[in-house]
Design a protein around this nucleic acid. Structure first.
Lengths: 401, 401
DNA sequence: CTATTAATGTCTAGTATGAAGACAAAAACA
DNA sequence: TGTTTTTGTCTTCATACTAGACATTAATAG
């Protein structure tokens, strides 16, 4: 039975994951294959339950109607797990990217040490997998997202300041916790989120070869996509923008130096300066703990019209725009996307960021704004982690189900 | 006659260009092919005169001796042309990269306007091609290097301040001047030089997936290689580092803003500050004109031990190191290479650059110095242009001879 | 209501690529 | 000189992909 070479099968799956519902001819054209070649491959993948025909409304076109193909939405599931200092997120997705379940658990008091946190995360993961089992889906992979310096190749966390982790072999740990039930992938939040953003844009029909996703928790970091693929750096350190020096003699940074971008546009700095400049009197005992809580507080203050906070956000936005301009001068990506917590603060940050972005850039893009807000919410890293677990199937190292 | 698919043939040629002399088994292993598959492809390319067996000294190994293959050195030639404001360089190379001829012509008085300069460049090119013809070689391609903003896709110079060019369809012009004799490729000096540096490292046996080549004429620019391929940016603007803002309220820049990296580490700024700080009294009427002459002057002053100049160079080096640190924080390449005129000034620049580089970087590479000096000389862009013209044959868009 | 039309999906035959393995070739060593 | 060891070539074979013919399907025209 001729069903196409492995490489072709994987290419078809990858193409469908990124480029959404396509007919067999479109699929073939996109990959440089004839209809006759695409068809058996498609049928093979359909037999395996990885892709499916989706119901199509009548198209008003003469001739035989197209059967649109897409990744199958029913049979399998992938899971993304995001381990943060104040919460653990689990996001279960169908292969088409639909979120089937989201679990958010605040960090427990006993989960402050590394081992405790890992156990806590495992608990959340088990909870998610129970639902996967209940729905009768088969798990294809788990992506684990941590904010910090991650060596995706070896599957270890090099340094995650917010978690207090250093040289933790997390991939092996999660694999063990799963009993080898599914392959596990490890990367940082920015890289995963960039992948999710890339897919979203491609499925929206925007041919995207490059993209930078800006996010931050402990510090500003970026997921960098050049030439259509994620660039992690030679040692996995690409995109660590937090300690770019942007001021000759600026504020003192936790890294011991002065003038790092983090001291101006990092979330801790933003929260601190907003609360400092708030016109609204702070209610006693209401100092937010953790980045998420701080951002919530800042957002609600700004929402309520607090001018001091709004000005502080505008200033931080301007610094962030300068950082984005540095990225653009160096990489000239199609877009720089503000994501993560920055996306939540976008109403107050974006406009000043764009202003300083444009004024700092020698040749700003004329046609479209090159600095945009992510269309994904705070679940982007978890969603990207799940997506990456799916994409890992297409790299040829593992057998498809 | 089974001679391998086109794709395989091109892959073999590409692999040999980059990975130097290899035996048939090594070549096969590098490309994931069996000896039996590699052999006919190799023979086909040998018949066409593109690759050749090179004479090998006895290896002292038992068994049949290997026949090392490499790109053929005799039959063809590629040419690189570098058009600068003060000089035009032509560099003719064998396919193995040996420089067969170098021509350097100072700009003529009548070549200051765009059309005049283009005519001048054409003259130099013709001169080079005469030698190619005399040697009985066939020309496979011409690469044209210009310092400025270049759109390699459309083959136009967007903006070359030192030449006074704006929106010049140079690729078409050179193609016409050649009468379509050979394909013409256009790019900027940093990108071409990065390619040349990449090949050098690969042929030296260093597996290099990423590299940034820093150079400057009118301003600092970088050739960026990520994932083994050149990244030019979505609009061809990647690597334009000259106008990165590095000082909040720094010196005024020609771009109209303040604090650009160019005002500290750009060559014009370096020359100016060196001559200003020179302890040696300047001989009357000896103000150097043009970047090259200025660098010559500065180098000879530093060579003679002028402390003022040496200090000025050290300061510029420190700023350059900061710029390199920005690149590393963002891209984490295997190495940042100081090239072009910076390589000439390296004796006085490198050490302070490394110092500020390491202090500006959060996680400097532990094993090797990440900031290095190019092993190529001032001919790197021209050499890279010639190389790129050769590599263009392997992209499948043109038929091999 | 039927024939036409225009598009997709599937099937068959043919080409040829690349792998496996056997065999020949060529130098170093005993 | 025979053995050893590695490379290079030749033959055979499985199979992936293409071209082109044929079947399928729904909208439109008469």
């Amino acid at each position: 039975m001729p069903s196409g070479t492995d490489k072709t099968v994987l290419a078809v799956l990858y193409h469908l994951i990124h480029h959404g519902p396509l007919s067999r001819p479109e699929l073939g054209a996109g990959l440089g294959l004839s209809r006759a070649t695409a068809s058996p491959v498609v049928n093979d993948l359909m037999r395996r339950g990885l892709i499916a025909e989706i119901s199509t409304p009548p198209q008003g076109q003469r001739g035989r109607p197209v059967a649109l193909l897409d990744v199958d939405d029913e049979r399998y599931a992938v899971t993304g797990l995001e381990i943060g200092s104040d919460r653990v997120l689990a996001s279960v997705h169908s292969l088409r990217g639909r979120q089937l379940l989201r679990i958010e658990r605040a960090a427990r008091a006993d989960a402050l040490n590394p081992r405790g946190l890992m156990r806590h995360a495992a608990t959340v993961l088990y909870e998610a997998l129970d639902v996967v089992d209940q729905e009768g889906r088969e798990l294809l992979g788990v992506g684990v997202s941590v904010a910090g310096l991650v060596d995706a190749t070896s599957g270890t966390i090099k340094y995650a300041p917010t978690l207090g982790w250093r040289d933790v072999a997390l991939q092996a740990g999660v694999t063990e916790a799963l009993g080898g039930r599914a392959p596990v992938l490890l990367d940082n939040d920015a890289n995963f989120a960039a992948l999710a953003e890339l897919r979203r844009r491609r499925r929206d029909g925007q041919p995207t070869a490059s993209l930078v996703y800006l996010t931050g928790t402990y510090g500003i970091s970026a997921g960098i996509i050049t030439g259509g693929v994620l660039w992690r750096g030679e040692r996995g350190l690409a995109g660590e923008l937090g300690h770019l020096n942007v001021e000759a003699d600026g504020r003192k940074c936790v890294c011991g130096r002065r003038g790092c971008l983090d001291t101006r546009a990092g979330l801790s700095a933003i929260i601190a300066s907003c609360l400092e400049n708030a016109s609204t009197p702070r209610r006693a005992g209401r100092t937010p703990v953790g980045i998420s809580a701080g951002v919530d507080e800042v957002a609600s203050l700004a929402q309520s019209g607090d001018q001091g906070v709004i000005e502080a956000l505008a200033e931080a936005g301007a610094w962030l725009g300068r950082g984005a301009a540095l990225v653009c001068a160096m990489l000239d990506p199609r877009t720089v996307v503000l994501g993560g917590h920055y996306a939540r603060l976008a109403p107050w940050i974006l406009s000043p960021a764009r202003e300083s972005f444009r004024s700092a850039l020698l040749m700003p893009a004329p046609e479209h704004e090159q600095l945009e807000v992510s269309g994904l919410d705070a679940w982007a890293p978890a969603e990207g982690a799940a997506l990456a677990a799916l994409l890992a199937l297409t790299d040829g190292t593992r057998a498809l189900p």
